[in-house]
Design a binder for these strands. Structure first.
Lengths: 205, 205
DNA sequence: GTCTATAGCCAGATAGAC
DNA sequence: GTCTATCTGGCTATAGAC
């Protein structure tokens, strides 16, 4: 039995580190700022996590671990292709509206630390999408959807869901949307993004 | 007349800085590494650009200035909506295949330096997309496309074009594509992404 | 314009008291 | 476990010779 009392400091640190790392990234973050946000002392960070690098990895793995299973659960469910797309889009956008820094954090760190990927793949942290690909091929074969490379469809689904969060400043610059309008646009995407995808692939019978 | 000789060192520095900043970001980059890559001494960086911050801004503005006009030219052309989408998608993807670090660099820095946006907007560096929006509304009004919020369509177009570059490590992890397959997928997107968009909005008459 | 040498600062990490 | 004080290294920036 692992003792469960007194794990407050440790989880306070992780929570504070999450906030700071997600806002500032690995290099932009300061241990002092994390300590302040956790309401403790710098030395304690090292007592619990030994180094900045290790603290960062703990945060990253927790963040990634939060996203991956949600995706996996839907991808590998018994739902029809159309239902999967609607379900995933709606769930994902709702989730990320509550954790807006998450996608950018993950993407950014994966881009600057390619070794993370190998590690994550090796540890089987990536949900398998083979079932999804097969489903797309079957739907194509029976003429229910327009022929499409399953990888392309997967990329499109991810792009339409993730990019509005990562590209927010850029998109706001172009479209001149204010913050409120942007949030409404994101809300609308819970169904609008799925509609867009379904329309793109569906064949009238 | 501004003298044009002897601008080699200055442009060597900018080129080296571009490479390092795009790979490592503002905080990850080291002045020493930039100096090495430019084949000169650290002190010279300061001689030409005064500080890391100013050098960074020079790189960023050059990068952003490379992308924005291409987009603007197409958006504000006389092409039909469908042609604009096909033209933009094909041009953008071809361009970024040659400059793969660019989108991530721009997005990342816009996300961590919100003041950049205000500056860019103030300096009118963002192409105006009002003409595009109007075109979408007209096409909707005459029943040529499915009704869609023009902002949503714009977001979708950007997402489908930009995300495959920014999310590359993530997408490779999920789809298990190797590097060669991934590049082929990107090539295919020059037309496939546009097809996807057109199919999503087009109405059979 | 270009270099070497170094100042000055700041952040991560540690020692050691309590 | 938690704190204060301090070490240490690395990085930006500058001084000054050539």
């Amino acid at each position: 039995m692992v003792s469960k009392k007194d794990n407050n400091t440790e989880s306070d640190i992780l929570e504070a580190a999450k906030n700071v790392f997600q806002r500032k990234g690995m290099f932009g973050a300061r241990m002092q700022e994390i300590a302040n946000e956790a309401g403790i002392n710098k030395a304690l960070l090292h007592y619990y996590y030994r180094s900045k690098q290790l603290l960062f990895e703990a945060v990253f793995k927790q963040a990634f671990g939060l996203m991956a299973p949600k995706l996996s659960a839907i991808i590998n469910s018994e739902l029809s292709l159309e239902e999967k797309i609607r379900e995933f889009t709606s769930n994902y956008i709702s989730f990320v509206i509550k954790h807006p820094y998450l996608p950018n954090f993950i993407i950014q760190e994966l881009n600057s630390n390619p070794q993370f990927i190998e590690q994550l793949v090796a540890e089987k942290n990536f949900p398998d999408i083979a079932g999804f690909k097969k489903q797309v091929e079957e739907m194509t074969a029976v003429g229910k959807i327009r022929p499409i490379n399953p990888n392309q469809l997967f990329v499109n689904i991810m792009a339409l869901n993730v990019f509005p969060f990562i590209g927010k400043p850029l998109l706001k610059g172009f479209t001149k949307m204010d913050e409120k309008t942007y949030q409404e646009m994101l809300e609308e995407r819970k169904t609008a993004a799925a509609d867009f995808i379904i329309n793109a692939i569906k064949l009238e019978q």
